[in-house]
């Protein structure tokens, strides 16, 4: 009912180009199907090509997911062969796999820190420096927790000084919380690696010589371990407190930015959010008054004692 016709765009043509790259990779593989280095070459080229053609960020994010998956395969394949020439043992490959996942883990941790937030403040420090232009002598302190100015604001620019000090403190708090979150994620990554290698070893010991492990089975097991570890941490009071603090801190930074923008808008006689809010509230109140005069809501009925009493209740007035 709501389907639109598909249309051609640069995105799809780039995908088609990437596919041609892959086909060339296959041809190389068929000519020399050794340990598959050519297999992995097409993706970085394709990803680079995608980046240069202005693809939407969503594609690049997903591209990172798939590129990560390719890196896992590469890590497992490049693990030195075992003594029998049949390849490294399961534990060795698990370690290679976990090493790649760990490198990616820290990046993901930063993303989740941003996601687990009700509202992310705009790039606060850049915003401050470009919009507010604080006195040059003070800018070095912005964002540095220990250097956050605590001295009294005085003189003609007292209000500006005080606002800037408050903003600096809030920003430093926000960055400190981000650091705490990053520390939590490092721990989650380490615990995941430990759990993952333990499980691989346990399965190997329980059933030696079973069906060969695949990259996907490694990947799924790793995800399972990561979610288990993360779930344990995410439910902990410390982590819950940290997430709430981070959200509050982000909102506080944003509120301060908003307050300063309001101040600037007033100076240029531009409408402010406060004025618009006031108008919205007035409209809302007026509409409620009009509605109450045109269609008064029925009074709440008394509490019914029995189910049948409800069914017998007369129809409400329209």
């Amino acid at each position: 009912m709501t389907e639109d016709a598909p249309r051609s765009d640069p995105w799809s043509s780039t995908v088609a180009e990437m596919q041609r790259e892959l086909l060339q990779g296959w041809l190389k593989m068929s000519a020399a199907p050794a340990q598959g280095s050519a297999l992995f070459e097409w993706w970085p080229r394709g990803a680079a090509m995608a980046g240069s053609s202005g693809l939407p960020p969503s594609f690049q994010q997903l591209g990172a997911v798939w590129e990560q998956y390719f890196n896992l395969g590469r890590a497992m394949l490049q693990e030195p062969s075992g003594e029998d020439g049949k390849g490294a043992d399961l534990a060795s490959r698990a370690r290679s796999f976990a090493a790649v996942m760990n490198a990616w883990f820290e990046q993901l941790g930063a993303q989740v820190g941003q996601m687990a937030n009700f509202r992310t403040a705009p790039d606060a420090q850049t915003w401050w420096q470009t919009v507010m232009q604080p006195p040059g002598a003070w800018t070095h302190a912005a964002g540095a927790k220990d250097a956050a100015p605590q001295f009294a604001a005085l003189g003609l620019t007292r209000e500006r000084q005080e606002a800037w000090q408050k903003f600096s403190r809030l920003l430093a708090q926000y960055q400190e919380l981000q650091t705490q979150l990053a520390a939590q994620w490092i721990k989650i990554g380490a615990d995941t690696t430990r759990k993952f290698t333990e499980r691989v070893s346990a399965r190997s010991a329980d059933a030696p010589g079973g069906a060969a492990a695949s990259i996907k089975s490694f990947y799924d097991l790793w995800i399972e371990c990561a979610e288990e570890v993360y779930g344990g941490v995410a439910h902990s009071p410390e982590y819950c407190r940290l997430i709430a603090d981070l959200a509050n801190s982000s909102n506080a930074v944003r509120a301060e930015q908003q307050r300063e923008l309001e101040s600037w808008a007033r100076q240029f006689d531009l409408p402010t959010r406060a004025e618009v809010n006031s108008l919205h509230q007035q409209v809302k109140e007026l509409r409620a008054q009009v509605r109450s005069q045109t269609s008064p809501p029925p009074p709440p009925p008394p509490i019914a004692k029995k189910k049948r009493a409800v069914r017998r209740r007369p129809r409400a007035p329209k």
Partner: peptide, 25 residues
Amino acid sequence: MSSAPPDPQALAAEMLEFGRRLSAT
């Protein structure tokens, strides 16, 4: 997950198949 050490050729084939599916997807 299975328990035996992975076969390099099988891993290469798996990645090849993943690449093929990714392109088609």
